[in-house]
């Protein structure tokens, strides 16, 4: 029984348990080293993306075909909308591979959440977004230290022209932002959205199934249909959220790198 979602008494309804819903080991039993379903899906997404990108860009034409057009428009959005506009036209090109990889990988893994045979967003296991956030964490620190030096990097965290009395306070807050808040929110945002969205869809389906086919009266069965319809609408909404979260993750990656590149102001 779930501790999180109140269960009605006497109706025999068991709300979906978050642990049982998300913990799906395939091999290795219940141990810490079990091979789980999201691991297989993450590898599958990489294979899928590699095959897609290789096939759609194999025969590049001036007038693109359908596959080339899809790939090019996504690449154009990341390159121009996220890379060039935020990082500046001087040195955005070296970060485009990172941004494009992040966007495609997160988008594919998120969309697994609503694609029927899979229906499990990989990023709803915290380890996956955490790994991606750690990559971003390392990248923007390295970029910052390379472009301004170690001392300059810490100096640029505090805006110039502040009264000297509040400089230590601002420096402490900025240090917290750079080393704690940014990676934690980056990972938690993606994880939280995917986790909450998936558990909502599971609740809609399980609850609707219970209301329709469970030991309930005829009046309640009508609400079961409504819950199923709600689940359908929420699936469409989840598709939107999954795209948006992939975009937001890439946008924030670009913004953090841009903050580390900026040497002129501050």
């Amino acid at each position: 029984m779930s501790s999180l979602l109140a269960a009605g008494e006497g109706t025999g309804f068991e709300a979906p348990d978050p642990i049982e819903t998300f913990w799906q080991p395939l091999w290795g039993g219940n141990s810490q080293f079990a091979l789980t379903r999201p691991m297989v899906m993450a590898v599958f997404s990489v294979v899928l993306l590699s095959v897609w990108l290789l096939l759609s860009t194999r025969k590049m034409a001036l007038v693109p075909g359908k596959a080339q057009f899809v790939t090019e428009s996504v690449y154009g959005m990341v390159r121009n909308g996220l890379g060039r506009d935020i990082l500046g036209s001087k040195d955005f090109l070296r970060f485009v591979p990172l941004l494009f990889t992040m966007f495609m990988l997160i988008l594919t893994n998120n969309l697994f959440g609503i694609i029927p045979p899979i229906q499990y967003p990989t990023m709803s296991r915290f380890g996956f977004p955490l790994a991606l956030a750690l990559i971003v964490f390392v990248v923007y620190h390295v970029v910052g230290i390379r472009s301004m030096g170690l001392g300059g990097y810490f100096r640029h965290m505090v805006p110039a022209g502040l009264p000297w009395l509040i400089v230590p306070l601002i420096f402490f807050l900025e240090l917290l932002t750079y080393f704690v808040t940014r990676p934690v929110t980056l990972a938690l945002r993606l994880f939280g959205n995917m986790f909450a969205g998936h558990i909502l869809l599971v609740l809609c389906v399980v609850g609707g199934e219970h209301l329709l086919f469970g030991d309930t009266g005829i009046a309640v069965k009508g609400t079961g249909v409504l819950v199923f319809l709600g689940g359908f609408v929420m699936t469409l909404f989840e598709g939107f959220v999954q795209f948006l979260q992939a975009y937001v993750f890439t946008l924030l990656t670009a913004l953090y790198i841009a903050g580390s590149l900026a040497t002129d102001e501050h």
Binding site: T185, L188, R189, F191, G192, N193, F195, A196, L244, Y247, V248, L251, L252, L255
Partner: peptide, 17 residues
Amino acid sequence: AILGFALAEALAIFGIA
């Protein structure tokens, strides 16, 4: 707008975690 949305939403995500 999306950046502001993401930053405001982070608080709600902290809450759910």
